[in-house]
């Protein structure tokens, strides 16, 4: 098993939550994991990405080679395109559709979604809406994780178990809310 995933967003959006849950699930399955993160200046509202690699073999590079990512999982639409050079031929972009506009020259939304659609196989997720449906706008990231679930080669039960482990210290209510968010994201992808 080999999976290379770029997770992208804007500093402060919390892309590391997604990475941490996948890490947990992969570790439970005894897979090797490498996950390169961005700390420091970019976390102040700049573009951030995480390189997440899962494998049953030894993983050498912390960075995914260009053209070798199976998946770009983005919680912001423009950011999904910033890492396009990493996407493998046949790779998939899964992105939230809500723009995070903190720059003056943010592109026109329709054109942006059109460019994504023209660049690769893609899944659009109205993550904000689904997160609110799950019960909290903060479950946005977990909705996106659910949307990515069919592409991860990890059983959904394992991912749900990891969500349980991750949110356990915040109480059962938080676990249930996030499981719901995960399932809404998952259903969105299965209906595409």
């Amino acid at each position: 098993m080999n999976k290379n995933i770029i997770i992208s967003g804007v500093g402060g959006q919390g892309i590391l939550t997604i990475a941490s849950i996948i890490d947990l699930a992969a570790m439970n399955l005894g897979l090797n994991v490498k996950q390169a993160e961005v700390h420091g200046m970019s976390q102040r509202g700049g573009a951030v990405e995480s390189h997440l690699r899962l494998s049953s073999d030894e993983i050498f590079s912390d960075l995914i080679p260009e053209g070798k990512a199976d998946l770009i999982l983005s919680i912001e639409p423009m950011e999904s395109l910033r890492y396009l050079p990493f996407l493998s031929p046949g790779g998939v972009i899964i992105t939230a559709t809500e723009p995070y506009v903190n720059i003056a020259n943010y592109p026109e939304e329709e054109k942006l979604l059109g460019t994504i659609a023209g660049s690769a196989n893609h899944v659009f997720v109205n993550a904000d809406l689904l997160a609110k449906e799950a019960g909290s706008a903060k479950s946005y990231n977990v909705v996106m994780l659910g949307a990515a679930a069919p592409y991860l080669d990890i059983a959904t039960e394992e991912l749900e178990k990891a969500i349980g482990m991750f949110f356990n210290r915040k109480g059962e209510e938080m676990v249930n809310l996030n499981i719901k968010a995960f399932r809404l994201g998952l259903a969105n992808s299965l209906n595409e």
């Binding site: 080679p65 260009e66 423009m78 396009l84 050079p85 996407l87 592109p107």
Partner: peptide
């Protein structure tokens, strides 16, 4: 990076897609 080393070792990698021009820089 792996790609830099691939080039230095004479490996021809696939032509990757470029970043579309629609993507604006997002500095901190």
């Amino acid at each position: 990076s792996p790609n830099i080393l691939a080039k230095a070792l004479g490996v021809k990698t696939n032509d990757e897609q470029a970043v579309p021009s629609i993507v604006a820089p997002r500095p901190p």
